[in-house]
Nucleic acid binder design. Structure first.
Length: 644
RNA sequence: GGGGAGUUAGUUCAGCUGGUUAGAACGUCGGCCUGUCACGCCGAAGGUCAGGGGUUCAAGUCCCCUACUCCUCGCCA
């Protein structure tokens, strides 16, 4: 038997043809004489029919077939014919509109069983019911499911489109080592002991950052790579210990040139995958503005609910303002923020959320007369209590709030019992809150308030059906977050640290703040940029420092001595001395990009063999133990903690 | 490293304030069925209630420990 078509190929135009299909038994419907089987391969499903009057032999064998057996059939393509509809009380075509091949079916004349299958531990179906643990243990079965097949096929398309885009634009695909030298700072590295060099270790590359800069020094001008990176940090929904970046670096460019190239790539990817024309250029927002309005540097702009910083108001009214806790937070150099939740009018909810909720409701309530509860107009008491619980688990003290009554009174707001009316008025003015609105407050240490408020904003939007739990909800909001500060003050060590990395080029007009006479690292902003999509950072990069004089100013501000710098990054510093061109670049997180573009539920859905939250592979059992001898060969001693 | 949720049949779950033989749906197996497509109907099998310890006359249920999974804070320049 030689395969002639895939299981997704046949249409009405093929009726009458003799075909051979190979695939897996997806589902069997045995009517005694007639047996229907949905045959599945990566392209789709085709209904194959066993009729004893066509082939007694094939029909007898078909009775034994079970889910996931691998078979080949020789068959004739026929139209689906007619069936009696009770609903319409007449004959209607027996086509299946849910199937691409639903106009036809094939009558089997001969069958070959290539392999039997045990009953799989979970159903190979569109909607998964099994939990992640079981799915990961039998990943090869999970990967048979159409959604995962689709996601990985899309990812393969993205890879191909990315390569052709960069090649067309004069980029060279150059490879960099995975095994390099450990350099301090940044993410924790995975270490690889060296057998040939006793007591020494390679570090797996956390990114090709230094190497790609060396490509620029070497004169390759435009580099790209689709490359694995390794970071030994805790995992999250959107983080894996090994992940893939689309990495680029360009010489003789300014920030805008990098933006244009990346916008062009993303445009191409969205065209390819969704046939959508993304509007470019993307919106740009200063880092400081993003922090003030959204509490982080990756704002989700699919909805409003911007934050308002109340520090100036509390400052102005001082202790006499009457809101003691806020005044105390201010005295402790903290941050005070408010967020207004307005009632959501009918029709303003995200249509895709409404649709999803309806589908879920219909599934849970098959009775067609069951009435779907309306979308949430505003937060219920229960909502607020649950939100408060959520943010307390993130470290918030509580969820201070004020409901603005129609007559302007503040209710549910014990914190403001003693507040001056003028202070309330100032808050109303600053936040733009109207009667009927609810104002939510956070105050305390800046980083905590920002984190809680940023999360709160997104949780509110999900609860009010403004954005879906996952997926775009039909709206793709790209933006560039630009001009962040170069340095961050570390309260614990009382030192300045590089906010991203020490090789980012500062704005020229801020260089004076690195000179001793007007030293103030907090005022130095830099050419660093992140590209953000719907609240996810999908990539980031910078224009690099290529001039040794400025570089040494930056090191000085960071408290890194010449020797320190030499021992850590000597080869890069040397390279910069030999005619380094101005250069900059960016890396896109390929996994996140694929996760967002496919609108799947988890990063794991676009990674063929992902790891669990503890970094284990449930299928292979990695990481595993090794022999004493292997360790001896590597001059390594393993001393896991003794179990109690 | 901190916080939270969870672990009951092959799977997804229910199992209330502790009380006789731990249930449902799907799946599986057997039988019937010529138009199904989540086929239908009849029947059956299937459980170390994650593991360990404790409280109790009695534990799936209460308490402690351990393991694993997920979410989250820290961390991820």
């Amino acid at each position: 038997m030689k395969r002639t078509h895939s299981c997704g190929a046949l249409r009405a135009a093929d009726i009458g043809k003799d075909v051979v299909l190979f695939g897996w038994v997806n589902n069997r419907r045995d009517h005694g004489d007639l047996i229907f089987i949905d045959l599945r391969d990566r392209e789709g499903l085709t209904q194959i029919v066993f009729d004893p009057s066509v082939s007694k032999e094939a029909h007898d064998l078909a009775e034994k077939l079970r889910s996931e057996w691998v078979i080949g059939v020789a068959a004739k393509v026929r139209s689906r014919g007619m069936q009696w509809s009770k609903k319409e009380n007449k004959e209607i075509p027996a086509t299946n509109p849910n199937l691409a091949t639903g106009e036809i079916e094939v009558y089997v004349t001969a069958i070959e069983v290539f392999n039997k299958s045990e009953t799989p531990p979970f159903e190979i179906s569109e909607h998964i019911t099994a939990n992640d643990e079981l799915r990961l243990q039998h990943r090869y079965l999970d990967l048979r499911r159409p959604p995962l097949q689709k996601a990985l096929i899309t990812r393969a398309k993205m890879n191909a489109a990315t390569r052709s885009y960069f090649v067309e634009n004069g980029f060279l695909e150059l490879e960099t080592p995975f095994m390099g030298r450990y350099t301090p700072g940044g993410a924790r590295n995975f270490l690889v002991p060296s057998r040939l060099n006793a007591g020494k270790f390679y570090a797996l590359a956390e990114s090709p950052q230094l190497y790609k800069q060396l490509f620029m020094v070497a004169g390759f001008e435009r580099y790209f790579q689709i490359v694995k990176c390794f970071r030994d940090e805790d995992l999250r929904l959107d983080r894996q210990p090994e992940f893939t970046q689309i990495d680029i670096e360009m010489s003789f460019v300014a920030q805008d040139d990098v933006f244009t190239v990346i916008e062009g790539l993303l445009k191409k990817l969205w065209k390819e995958v969704h046939n959508l024309d993304l509007p470019t250029p993307f919106l740009r927002m200063d880092f400081d503005e993003s922090m003030a309005k959204y509490g982080n540097d990756k704002p989700d702009l699919r909805f409003g609910m911007q934050h308002t910083v109340l520090n100036p108001i509390i400052e102005k009214f001082g202790a006499e303002g009457g809101v003691g806790p806020m005044w105390e937070a201010l005295q402790a150099k903290g941050l005070i923020k408010a967020l207004v939740v307005s009632p959501v009018a009918a029709g303003q909810h995200n249509p895709s959320v409404v649709k999803a909720k309806e589908e879920a409701f219909r599934k849970a309530n098959p009775n067609p007369t069951a009435k779907m509860p309306p979308p949430p107009h505003e937060l219920s008491r229960k909502d607020i209590e649950e939100l408060e619980k959520d943010i307390v688990s993130m470290g918030a003290k509580g969820l201070a709030r004020a409901k603005i009554a129609e007559n302007g009174d503040w209710t549910q707001a014990p914190l403001f019992k003693t507040a001056k009316p003028e202070l309330r008025a100032a808050i109303i003015e600053a936040t733009g809150a109207k009667p009927g609105d609810l104002i939510l407050f956070q105050f305390g240490p800046e980083s905590k308030v920002q984190m809680v408020m940023a999360n709160l904003r997104v949780m509110l939007a999900k609860r009010l059906w403004l954005i879906p739990e996952y997926g775009s909800g039909g709206s793709w909001n790209f933006l560039w977050v630009v001009n962040p500060p170069l340095f961050e003050y570390d309260e614990e060590s009382k030192t300045w640290a590089a906010a991203h990395h020490a090789f980012t080029r500062p704005h020229d007009e801020h260089l004076k703040y690195l000179q001793p006479e007007s030293f103030d690292p907090s005022k130095v902003y830099c050419y660093r940029y992140d590209v953000v999509l719907n609240g996810f950072e999908i990539g980031g990069g910078s224009i690099r420092l290529h001039d040794p004089a400025t570089q040494s100013l930056v090191f000085k501000a960071l408290g890194i001595s010449e020797e320190d710098a030499r021992s850590k990054f000597g080869f890069l510093l040397d390279a910069l001395k030999f005619g380094a061109p101005p250069h900059g670049g960016l890396a896109l997180g390929m996994d996140r990009l694929a996760f967002l573009i496919t609108e799947t539920e988890s990063l794991r859905d676009v990674i063929p063999f992902p790891k669990t939250q503890k970094g284990t592979d449930l299928m292979t059992g990695a990481p595993g133990e090794v022999d004493e001898k292997q360790l001896r060969d590597l001059f390594v001693k393993s001393t896991p903690p003794q179990k109690a």
